[in-house]
């Protein structure tokens, strides 16, 4: 399955819904999406990864790059993920300490810490 991307606005947050596979082939699409959002002044992002079937370190790099971009504007990047196989990658790399990871979009959108 290829990568699917869609965005919507919820309050002051922009929700990026990601589906499919984030790998070395598709990660550039996600990178462009995140760059476009930050370039257009959207600095509080929620990346919904519930539909992601595959994630490798290339994808992690794109998410980390996105985090650094929004942080440069005092923004935030929150993840929504409950899939154990994806969470395992974040745990192995220690990125659970870097990204706020939420169980639902509602929770991520309302989070303020």
């Amino acid at each position: 399955m290829d990568l699917s991307l869609s965005t919507r606005t919820e309050g002051d947050r922009t929700v990026v819904v990601v589906g499919g596979e984030i790998d070395v082939y598709t990660a550039p699409k996600l990178r462009e999406q995140l760059i476009d959002l930050v370039s257009s002044g959207q600095y509080h992002l929620v990346v919904d990864m519930e539909g992601v079937e595959f994630l490798d370190s290339t994808g992690l790099g794109v998410l980390v790059g996105g985090l650094k971009r929004v942080r440069a504007h005092e923004g935030s990047l929150r993840l929504v993920c409950t899939q154990e196989r994806i969470l395992k990658i974040f745990r192995i790399t220690g990125l659970t300490k870097v990204f706020p990871i939420h169980a639902s979009v509602e929770e991520a959108v309302s989070a303020t810490d």
Binding site: S57, G61, I92, L95
Partner: peptide, 16 residues
Amino acid sequence: LARDLLDSATDDEFDD
């Protein structure tokens, strides 16, 4: 690892 990942994206170029 998290630090390595963060460092791998440079502040100047945002090289991911």
